[in-house]
Design a binder for these strands. Structure first.
Length: 732
DNA sequence: CAGAATGAAAC
DNA sequence: GTTTCATTCTG
């Protein structure tokens, strides 16, 4: 029954039931519309040229006038802007929270935000919308049913996730359009650009990815299908190491004792497998930065030639030791390949081995800062692994087929990113033809100056990494493009790098990656730097941007576009970024009983109930969970007051009947007014006692009864282990 | 790919 | 009133 809901149906199904057909919208791009430039009254000449260039550059056939308008993606509303701006913060604050949980928190934050504070966002959203509407005069938010729908694949410009925006260039503060010097031509904001403050470790990633490709013959286990992320982690440990060896090797004081990739690979394996567990936070951090230095190619740090391995070991050992027990010195990857399914099972196994109650252990683990650090590396590595692996797959049909039956984790990414990758390749070309090549890099560099104060030297290193990377990319770039057939399937190192990077960006990997790194950092000195950090952070982040970037631009014709993108980016970045503390305070004042992790708890609540009811009975499991819910019942009821959640769709509501004992049971046609709102703010006051969490849980469960089965299995499994952790975290 | 949220627009 | 779809990204 939910099928008609928000799930994106194939756009082709023109007339399903009575509902509007869903269509895939193309990201709106000013270049898609002749009118694109209208909104900024004066300055369009040069842009027009660029426009034509680009349009002719792309395969023009797919851009029909009307379809382009129809396809354009909606501009973000204020809340979405807010989300985009703050999601990473939420994720920093709640590292264990999944994205949906983060969204909930964001909603809560948004809810407690004062109108004045929201204003900037609403203003900007309005600007976006206005600009958008000018560019797409007849744009229909919800496309009319009759229009023919095109396949999603025919997106002319840009990847699904890479957006270029255009809007009038007034600052967010002056909501009245047209304050800005019109010399600023069409401003464009590439909204999907990775947050410049989160671009760290790129070179590292790219090198790793490179290695994954170039050395796959050597490490034959690379071909292992069904690669669990754990194994990918392993691989990337090696990759990591290799990358740095390589760097060492190429340094002036190059060491000649390594001959060829084979030996290097062996050395890497050996190094990785012989590591000891060194869960020392300081050491880890140190090593981490050492690696960065290395990666960065800085001369300021030299490993003693004979001890470089041990110098690098700590970080590696941290990674490997968390992810696995001792690895056999040889064939570590191969053995690992069949060993474990994923990181989580992995953890479980570890816990079992140690005979520590898993919940207890998790609790302590969760609160362990060291884990944050490790996690951040894990994330990094995993991101690399996925990207690299994907590229490898792209590049090699053999692999592709072998992987087809692979595990969902890997596969998902693959399929998900594949067409995107193709599109991006296209886009890349397009950028070239329009002379835009490198603009993003330039922008990145410029924007990378916008570092929050929290950023330390590491950030600077990363900034420089970006520069370096920019230069590194060029030569191979040409090589890639020389071969037209390469588009869509990777053939060169560079394209792999590029694809890896782009994949990371498009998937938000870099953001989360960097967020993870920050998370690690923050975790390390959270106690003392938290407050000060955030107190100035909000606006400090924003202001720095505008100055530097301009100088960094070298390309002339793309200067405008680059500038514009930059302008948009700046604008977005200039949106206030509120400290989690702010919301905590607000939260306590607005809703007294709000708990830090309430959203999570609720989510878990629903999850748990969902999983349980599939059993059709009130198992002990069920009882446990219900009681667990009731324990927090009061608090949760209070918590619900704070946020104003959207009413559930009627079609999604399983109607409820209140029974004599006050519990709620589902019934088909007989809904008590307000029952559907049991979880909503307004009703909470009116029905304080009747709708216990048990009831809510059941409601949630009933509403989800028809949902996919695999989620059930998953949640059933997970809730058992994770619920206690979440609760405990709420208290910390 | 679903989904978590809010909001704008179109039914 | 209801539905769609913008955002992100985990499961």
């Amino acid at each position: 029954m939910k099928s008609g809901g928000r799930g994106k149906e194939p756009p082709v199904a023109g007339e399903v039931t009575g509902k509007r057909p869903k269509r895939k919208c193309l990201q709106w791009h000013p270049l898609l519309s002749k009118k694109a430039l209208d909104f900024s009254e004066e300055e369009e000449e040069e842009d027009e040229e660029d426009l034509e260039k680009v349009q002719s550059g792309s395969t023009t056939e797919e851009i029909e006038e009307d379809s382009s308008e129809q396809r354009a993606r909606r501009p973000m509303n204020a809340f979405l802007l807010f989300c985009k701006r703050h999601r990473s913060l939420v994720r920093q604050e709640h590292p264990r929270l999944d994205n949906r949980g983060a969204t909930k928190i964001l909603a809560d934050w948004w809810a407690v935000l004062e109108p004045k504070e929201k204003q900037k966002y609403t203003d900007m959203a309005k600007e976006y919308k206005d600009a958008f509407m000018k560019a797409n005069p007849g744009y229909k938010w919800c496309p009319t049913t009759s229009k023919p729908v095109k396949t999603p694949s025919c997106q002319p410009v840009g990847s699904p996730r890479k957006k270029v925006w255009s809007l009038s260039c007034n600052s967010p503060k002056d909501s009245t359009a047209k304050k800005v010097p019109k010399t600023e031509s069409l401003p464009q904001l590439n909204f999907a650009m990775a947050d410049p403050t989160k671009m760290g470790g790129l070179t590292m990633l790219l090198l790793a990815g490179e290695h994954a490709l170039t050395n796959r013959e050597v490490g034959s286990s690379f071909y292992c299908p069904n690669y669990p992320s754990f194994v990918l982690n392993q691989i990337c440990c090696c990759t990591f190491y290799y990358a740095h060896l390589k760097l060492l090797k190429s340094s002036p004081s190059s060491r000649r004792d390594l001959k060829g990739p084979q030996q290097e690979w062996k050395l890497t394996l050996k190094a990785v497998s012989n590591l000891e567990i060194l869960p020392d936070q300081k050491q880890f951090r140190q090593s981490y930065h050492q690696i960065k230095y290395l990666d960065h190619g800085s001369d300021t740090y030299h490993f003693p030639p004979s001890t470089h391995t041990s110098a690098l070991c700590p970080s590696l050992s941290c990674v490997t030791s968390t992810s696995t027990d001792a690895i056999p010195p040889q064939n570590s990857c191969q053995s690992a390949c069949v060993k474990r399914k994923n990181k989580k099972t992995e953890e479980a196994d570890l816990n079992d081995n140690n005979e520590i109650p898993s919940s207890a252990k998790r609790i302590s683990k969760t609160c362990n800062h060291l884990e944050s650090n490790i996690d951040c590396v894990f994330s990094t590595i995993e991101a690399v692994a996925r990207g690299a692996w994907m590229d490898t797959e792209d590049n090699n049909k053999k692999i592709h087929t072998s992987l087809t039956g692979g595990k969902s984790g890997v596969l998902r990414k693959k399929t998900n990113t594949k067409d995107k990758t193709v599109i991006k390749e296209k886009e890349e070309k397009l950028d070239d033809s329009s002379g835009l090549n490198g603009s993003s890099n330039v922008e990145m560099k410029g924007l990378s100056d916008i570092n929050p104060k929290a950023e330390t030297g590491a950030a600077n290193m990363e900034k420089e990494e970006n520069e370096k990377n920019k230069e590194k990319e060029k030569p191979n770039d040409a090589a890639c493009k020389a071969n037209p057939e390469n588009c869509g399937s990777r053939k060169s190192e560079r394209s792999c790098k590029g694809a890896l990077y782009k994949t990371l960006v498009s998937e938000g990997m870099l953001t989360s990656l960097r967020a993870n790194i920050d998370r690690g950092k923050r975790g390390a000195f959270r106690t003392f730097d938290h407050d000060t950090n955030w107190s100035q952070d909000s606006c400090a982040v924003s202001q720095i941007g505008p100055n530097n970037p301009k100088k960094l631009k070298k390309s002339k014709s793309k200067d405008d576009l680059g500038k514009l993108e930059e302008e948009f980016e700046r604008k977005f970045n200039s949106l206030p970024q509120y400290s989690p503390l702010t919301f905590d305070k607000k939260g306590t004042t607005v809703a007294k009983k709000r708990k830090p992790e309430n959203s999570t708890t609720q989510e878990e609540t629903a999850k748990s109930a969902k999983g349980v009811t599939s059993n059709k009975g009130h198992s002990t499991e069920h009882k446990r969970l219900i009681s667990l819910l009731n324990v927090q019942g009061t608090a949760c009821m209070e918590m619900l007051v704070g946020s104003q959640k959207r009413k559930a769709r009627k079609t999604k509501i399983t109607h409820l009947v209140r029974t004599a004992d006050g519990s709620v049971s589902p019934a088909e046609g007989d809904r008590i007014p307000g029952a559907e709102d049991a979880g909503r703010s307004t009703v909470a006051q009116e029905l304080p006692a009747f709708f216990s969490l048990t009831a809510l849980a059941e409601v949630a469960a009933m509403e989800n009864v028809h949902r996919d089965q695999r989620a059930l299995a998953q949640s059933q499994k997970k809730e058992l282990t994770q619920t206690p952790v979440l609760i405990s975290c709420a208290d910390q």
